[in-house]
Design a protein around this nucleic acid. Structure first.
Length: 195
DNA sequence: TGCCCGATTAACT
DNA sequence: GTTAATCGGGCAA
């Protein structure tokens, strides 16, 4: 595992994330995320800024969102609808409480492990959604607060340019029209197509 | 303490 | 297209 990726430069994680979510989010498209050696290419993310009514941090620090108020370059994992897990990367200077939600991957490494964890799903549905990719990469609340430049996480910067698309975020009611969803154009692994 | 609802998904009609 | 599953967080009382 990882052999074919060994030539890729690792992302300088801490400094990479110590920027605006609106710079980090598009830069994550095309990057490769592995957890314990399993994962793929990021094809869809959403930015959540602390001034954003849809962000968990909007109303101030609580037990759940504490990691968002810490330094950049850490994982914020929360439970969604009592059933699923969702993975975020904390961005910006400490205390700004902003993060990028990882919404979809193109599976590239550890396909058999991901299929096993996801059950009957075909490849296109393995990681095409925030809850699905957490199940495929076995991400749970145990990874909440872990540094993204240390095991089990591995992040590899994308090579070259990619074609980006943007649009409104999925599944929210507040600030639903803000175009803070970023994706890889025409990817078949998006959680939903862009309009 | 009680109540509402959500950064979702899969299985329906 | 619609809806059940499932439960912790956040806020009102």
């Amino acid at each position: 595992m990882g052999k074919m990726l060994s030539h890729l430069p690792k992302t300088p994680t801490r400094s990479f994330f110590r920027r605006s979510v609106h710079e980090v989010a598009p830069d994550l498209i095309g990057a490769t995320l592995l957890v314990d050696g399993v994962g793929g290419r990021i094809v869809e993310v959403e930015a959540y800024h602390h001034t954003d009514p849809a962000a968990h941090s909007f109303r101030g620090p609580t037990g759940r969102n504490a990691v968002m108020f810490g330094p950049a370059g850490y994982a914020y994992v929360y439970r969604s609808y009592g059933i699923h897990w969702c993975l975020n990367f904390v961005c910006e200077p400490k205390g700004s409480a902003s993060a990028v939600l990882i919404r979809a991957l193109e599976p590239t490494v550890g396909l058999s492990a991901m299929r096993r964890r996801r059950g009957l799903a075909d490849e296109r549905l393995l990681c095409s959604g925030p809850g699905r990719l957490c199940q495929a990469l076995r991400i749970t609340g145990r990874q909440n607060g872990l540094a993204l430049d240390e095991p089990p996480f591995e992040l590899f910067a994308r090579q070259g340019e990619v074609e980006l698309v943007t649009g409104p975020r999925i599944g929210i009611t507040k600030a639903a029209d803000w175009p803070w969803r970023y994706g890889l154009k025409d990817s078949r692994f998006l959680s939903k197509p862009f309009a």
